[in-house]
């Protein structure tokens, strides 16, 4: 089941701020491209920095090959509107987009769903046209993803005629096709991200047509001790043992022990949240674990490491 994740045509990746949503989106796209799929990584979060994760220089609306087989782009609603008018509505390219863009800004502000249609519309359109084997969308954070994915539906309910109404049909079709489109939620084994993940899983089911296809648990701490070792550690922390170790080391062992104790309690607190996640989520939804990376780098090197971890989790 988990294996099929990359066999979709369109994956939306969301997560609470700070859990590594963009890293995981970049890593999934990288992994797909390494496995021979022509892949587009599309960032639609306004403040996104997807290009940092490929260290490829800034991306813009026009997709650019950043790795073999891997293309990256970032959303720009104005460019999307231009393209939309040209391709979908057969309007000629408009030389003076300025006033029109302002008018559009206004309509998009006033009429719910219009902006979302454009941001979601682009990656879905790329899928419909079959330009790529897989489109991975670095989507908005958990708080906004439902209104984004449900936008075509809300437009459908509000607008009964007009060109935009005609456009929502195929959007809804592709978004709702289980074998084509899937949502991936990224979380960490911490309290708030786990709460938001559980809540979001429910809302996605109730309020959108998009199917949840996987949860990536990022930054999972390793188990420090094997069987029976924690008891040994507790004995070593007794004053007599500490004194003996201090003498042998010629320097206090205490801060190093304190660090280990911190690592053990951190891991334990997180294990509790992980259990809660496991029992609250439908068992058919695969959980993929990415270990905490103890490394200095954060650019492409991290993306590659996360891609490797995901590859192992998907049993490739």
């Amino acid at each position: 089941m988990a294996r099929d994740l990359l066999d979709h045509k369109l994956l939306f990746v969301t997560g609470k701020g700070g859990v590594g949503k963009s890293t995981v989106a970049a890593a999934l796209a990288l992994l797909a491209s390494q496995r021979g799929k022509r892949t587009l990584a599309c960032e639609i979060d306004a403040k996104g920095n997807l290009s940092d994760f490929f260290e490829s220089g800034p991306t813009d609306y026009e997709p650019r090959e950043v790795q073999p087989n891997l293309y990256a782009m970032s959303m720009d609603t104005e460019a999307s509107l231009q393209e939309y008018l040209r391709l979908q509505m057969r309007l000629p390219a408009i030389a003076r987009i300025g006033p029109l863009a302002r008018a559009f800004e206004f309509v998009a502000t006033a009429a719910p769903g219009v902006r979302e249609i454009l941001t979601v519309g682009k990656p879905v359109w790329e899928v419909r046209e079959g330009h790529y084997d897989l489109v991975v969308v670095d989507a908005v954070a958990t708080g906004h993803i439902v209104s984004q994915l449900a936008a075509p539906q809300s437009i459908n309910e509000l607008v009964h005629v007009g060109l935009i109404r005609q456009q929502t049909g195929w959007l809804i079709d592709i978004l709702g096709k289980k074998e084509t489109t899937g949502l991936v939620i990224v979380t960490t084994p911490e309290e708030m991200p786990v709460n938001e993940t559980i809540e979001l899983a429910g809302r996605v089911e109730d309020e959108t047509d998009v199917a949840l296809k996987g949860i990536v648990v990022n930054r999972v701490l390793p188990e420090l001790f094997g069987r029976g070792e924690e008891e040994v550690f507790e004995e070593l922390r007794q004053p007599a043992a500490v004194g003996a170790l201090d003498d042998s080391l010629g320097s206090p062992v205490e801060p190093v022990f304190e660090a280990a104790r911190l690592a053990v309690t951190m891991r334990r607190t997180r294990a509790g949240h992980l259990d809660r996640l496991r029992t609250s989520i439908d068992s058919s939804i695969p959980l993929l674990y990415v270990p905490y990376l103890f490394m200095r780098a954060h650019g492409f090197r991290t993306t590659r490491q996360v891609a490797e971890a995901l590859s192992a989790e998907l049993s490739y």
């Binding site: 070792e229 008891e231 040994v232 550690f233 070593l236 170790l245 003498d247 190093v256 280990a260």
Partner: peptide, 25 residues
């Protein structure tokens, strides 16, 4: 290093691996 404390714990064999893991962590 473990040798210094081995006499003080019930399972002396495990002192060395535990200390190594603590250091690595």
């Amino acid at each position: 290093v473990a040798h210094a404390a081995e006499s003080l714990i019930a399972n002396p064999d495990k002192a060395a691996p535990v200390l190594r893991e603590v250091g690595e962590s």
